[in-house]
Each structure stands twice: as structure tokens, then as C-alpha cells.
Design a protein around this nucleic acid. Structure first.
Lengths: 191, 191
DNA sequence: TCCATTAGGAACCAATTGGTACAAATAAAC
DNA sequence: GTTTATTTGTACCAATTGGTTCCTAATGGA
């Protein structure tokens, strides 16, 4: 009927995702957000409800863009061991001090924003599942045996390790090479 | 010479520690902080420089009060296995949604505040050392052997796991019982 | 071509932000 | 008791917060 919007919704959400990812929710004010999205107040409030709803949309964008990409990278990994493939999780693009948006969101808003924790839990589950499938693919099938734990447990352990890695990385006091640890967790002799 | 201050510095810092611990730096405004510390603006700005310096003081308070207490609890632990003692780290007082102040601070301010990351790194090192000493105390001495990793590596792994646990706990999507995982990492058959 | 409808942009808004100024209250030193 | 130094509390401040209003401009359909 009338004038179509001149900005691209996807790239605007990319901008929102990146600024929230880097700065968090409260530390990102409206001017920051508008600049990152390439919008002015008018079009912003025409297209979105408020800052909070854009934050949630940014989390969904992260789910589509980053989490899904990570999962396919894990599924398509042609390494020779599970730990080699799972090392992908621990050697991200390394934008210094950006960390993992899921981890950041959990820590900042998890306890006070159900809409946030719902999304972070969902993404965490997807990652957990992706990790588990790598483990299974490389032979660590659902063994309930004594010493070695089933793939679910290993995946959950590695997922927690991943978030710890991301958290510590933001203060640059973390470890970079996790191949030996992963191999040990997975019960391999060497990575 | 003149009028002595009527508030107790230590309890005021406890209040600051607790509110920053629960809400983070930016999400805590001055009225919140003043209430938590039991001070009015006047005495606050007489006694402290600004909000930021109080945050750093609160981190130091956490170091003294919480971290040191945790370390002595680990050192004094009379459990029968290392994983049993280290389970202490994963079963805190469980104020829901408060998490670990170190983790919160790293994630919120690590990349942008050197004074913060310096402190979180220091506390993380203390924890790492405490964990390592537990491992060594229970016989996992600095073995450089093939499959089992040296105590340093194990301690670092558990420390990262701890932070991941704290991060995920804030969205209540984390695991509560880590005894089996710890036992596996440490190379024991059962916890 | 003209109109209905919507995007875009700037001015504006009340509320809140962290921080300051200053007078009143208070207690030690003499 | 007077003096003096310092804390305490209140009133105040400019700047910033997220959000609204409203006018202009652009566009697709008739």
C-alpha cells in the first residue's frame, strides 16, 4: 500500500546482536543501539516495541546465525577424533572480549528475565545435543559402562566447560588449547 | 579530633558486595547501593570516591570473605576423596540467581575494566591453586604420565567447569551434582 | 496524477542517572 | 563549656536515560 521500509531487517538485527553481544543489555544505551542498527529513533520505534524486545530478537538472531552455524560446523567436521572436532567450540573467531552471547545473557539477565533464560536454555540445549552427536559419531556411543560415562554426561560436561571457557576468556585469564583435556574427558589417549 | 564515623566499614562493604554480586555493576544504581550499604549520599561520598571504586572494594571484600573462606573449606575438607571435597565448589549456599561474583564481574566488565579483570584473575588463580592442592593431597601428585594429566591441568579444567556451572546456574539450566564427573576427571572409579 | 499510508527524522519529554554543595548535627580536645 | 574538625543528611545539579510526538517525505495503488 504505502512506503516500504528502506532498511534491511536482517542486517539491522545483526547490528543489534553485535552490540548487545559485546556490551550487554544495560550497558548499551539507545544511541549505541541505533547506531549499531543503522536506524534513527523514528524507524526504530516504528519497527520494534522497545529496547527489551530488540534484545530478545537479537538473541533469536544469535540462535539462527551463530548457534546454527556452529552446529553445522560440528556436524560437518571431518576431523579424525571427537576432541579434534569439539575443539572448534574453543577456538572461535576471537573477537577479543566479546565472549559468547548465550553466556553473557545468562549471567546478566538469567535470574531476572524469564524471556531471556528461556532462550539461553534453548540454545544451550541445542549445543548440548550437537556436542553429544559428535561424541556418538566418533564411536562414543551410549555406553552405560562403569568408568566411562555415557555421551549425555560427557556432552553436558563439555558444554559447561565451554561456558566456563567463554566466561574466563572475557577477563583473558582462560586457556586456549583444550585438545588434551577434551581427549581425556572423552577417554582417548591423545588428541 | 572530631566526630567519628557512625557506620561500620566492614558491614557497609558487605552490603555493597551483596548488591553488586546480585545485580552487577551497571544494573545497580546509587539508591540501590546506598540502601544496601546503609548509608546516605553524604557519608557515601565522604568515605568513598565514587561508585566504581566501591565496586572494586566490593570485589576485594569478596576475595577476603568468600574466596578465602572457600579455600580454607577446601583445605580443611575431611572427605575421603578429592572429588568429594571439590564438590564443595558446586554446592554453594544457593542464593538463587546470584551465582559467583567473580564470574559475574568477568563477564560484565572483564573486557573493559582492567582494574576488574586484574582482581578476577587474581581470585581465579587462588581458586585454581586451592583446587590443585586438594588434588595433590589426595594422591594425584604431579604425574606427567600419558593418560592422566598433571594436577595443574586437572585443576584448571575443574576451575573452568566451576565457572561454567556458575554461569549456567544463573539461567537455572545447569547441573547440580558433579560428583561423577569430578571422579571421572580425577581418574577415580566412583565418587 | 493524486491519494492513502507508512517510513524517516528531529524536537521534545519526564524520569532517572551519578555526583556536588552546604548547612546541621556530633563528638573529641582543650 | 567552647572550639574545632568531621560526619551526616538534604537539597540541588547537569547529563543521560528510554520513549513519544509530530511533521515531512516517499511510495505503491487507484
Amino acid at each position: 500500500m504505502a512506503r516500504p521500509r528502506s532498511f534491511d531487517m536482517d542486517t539491522a538485527l545483526d547490528g543489534a546482536m553485535n552490540i548487545f553481544w559485546r556490551q550487554g543489555y544495560t550497558a548499551t544505551n539507545l544511541p549505541d543501539l541505533l547506531t549499531a542498527m543503522g536506524l534513527t529513533r523514528g524507524s526504530f520505534y516504528k519497527a520494534f516495541n522497545d529496547k527489551e524486545s530488540v534484545y530478545l530478537a537479537a538473541l533469536d538472531q544469535y540462535d539462527r546465525k551463530v548457534v546454527d552455524k556452529t552446529l553445522t560446523a560440528l556436524a560437518d567436521c571431518e576431523g579424525s577424533t571427537a576432541s579434534q572436532c569439539l575443539s572448534l567450540l574453543f577456538s572461535g573467531p576471537k573477537d577479543p572480549g566479546r565472549g559468547c552471547f548465550i553466556c553473557n545473557a545468562m549471567v546478566e539477565l538469567g535470574p531476572v528475565q524469564n524471556d531471556v533464560s528461556r532462550r539461553t536454555n534453548h540454545m544451550a540445549s541445542k549445543l548440548r545435543k550437537g556436542i553429544k552427536e559428535v561424541i556418538i559419531r566418533f564411536g562414543g556411543k551410549q555406553e552405560t559402562g562403569n568408568a566411562i560415562q555415557p555421551a549425555d554426561e560427557k556432552a553436558d560436561l563439555i558444554l559447561h566447560l565451554y561456558f566456563g571457557h567463554q566466561a574466563m576468556g572475557k577477563a583473558s585469564s582462560g586457556r586456549d588449547d583444550w585438545s588434551l583435556q577434551l581427549a581425556h574427558i572423552l577417554g582417548q589417549s591423545t588428541a
